[in-house]
Nucleic acid binder design. Structure first.
Lengths: 177, 177
DNA sequence: CAAATATGTCAGCCATGTTGACTTATTTTA
DNA sequence: TAAAATAAGTCAACATGGCTGACATATTTG
């Protein structure tokens, strides 16, 4: 059942031989999957986008709030590394968040060059409001996807990401596995 | 097994009661899922991004190539609708693609106001080169995700998207389901 | 013939990425 | 201890790809 060709979301057409014409014919269900990735991601971030707008923030601010929330006390360079952006890009949004007291900086005691980043209460609240609709979306989808487990979805998604990223994620996630 | 709390990608911590503190404690595995969505999407588009760069194109060009490739003969307004962007945004990239002969315009016979969009041979080739690494990524991930099926992943992703988007996608996909 | 529709274009704004050059603290190391 | 390396921050300029508003043109429809 799981290996059959049916169920690729219900196209009218029969699947093409699906054989090893690999370099000639693309497997249609995977082309569809590419598209699903695009649509799902776009809609998945649409709710937080709306909330952010009302605060004069953008997606970049969201990412910072998210990662600082997930790894309280992380340094600026750790944040840069996980986001894979330049410090000039980061600085614009980080400055906003610090000025408006969503994020607090604490100088590290041992190494006073390092600034530890933390969410303020205000920051936690916003982060919470941003992630709530996304969590709900997952829960709804999970409820509707009988047979599918979150665990399997996670495994699949994890395999899509690059090794270096995987390290960052694991880090974030606690490490083992 | 599929309902247990374990396997949320291997955090060090025990899962918090996971009870109905719903409005107080976020389900950790879903917070991780949010993050996976971010990382997976970013890495998933990274290969095409590299190819695009060598052509002087961006992600926006990729999307146009993709949808025109998937729905040959679509009109400009259909494309605008599916991309959910303004015609001014589209025009910049579409102009590039037409000038450089990746996309061909044909005036509709019945209604000469409508321009039908098509990929040229050159367009097909580029599209193919862009999607190939993504297809490969899916195939690799699928191979590594024993137990998980593409079908279930698709169902889950489909449920994440908005109703209106779902209509667009189905359209694209052939309609039924 | 008037109104609606499909497309295209000009001009300017905004968010968020980039590079390169430099400063200031602070810690490490030779 | 003096020099080098590291962490953070800043200024300036540039690119991409969203956006709005205002219009122009061709074509079809009522």
């Amino acid at each position: 059942m799981s290996q059959e060709n049916k169920g690729t979301l219900g196209k009218k057409h029969e699947n093409p031989p699906s054989s090893d014409t690999s370099s000639l014919e693309l497997p249609l269900e995977l082309v569809e999957a590419v598209e699903l990735m695009f649509f799902a991601y776009r809609d998945f971030v649409s709710d937080p986008d709306t909330i952010l707008e009302s605060h004069g923030f953008g997606r970049a601010h969201h990412r910072v709030l998210h990662f600082v929330g997930r790894r309280p006390g992380m340094s600026v360079s750790e944040l840069l590394h996980i986001l894979s952006i330049t410090k000039q890009s980061l600085s614009r949004v980080l400055k906003d968040l610090i000025e408006e007291k969503y994020i607090i900086q604490e100088t590290d005691e041992k190494d006073r060059r390092i600034k530890r980043l933390l969410l303020s209460a205000k920051g936690h609240e916003l982060h919470r409001n941003l992630i709530d609709p996304q969590i709900r979306r997952f829960q709804d989808s999970l409820a509707k996807s009988e047979g599918g487990t979150l665990e399997k979805w996670q495994k699949f998604m994890l395999h899509l990401i690059n090794m270096e990223t995987k390290i960052d994620f694991m880090d974030d996630t606690g490490g083992d596995k």
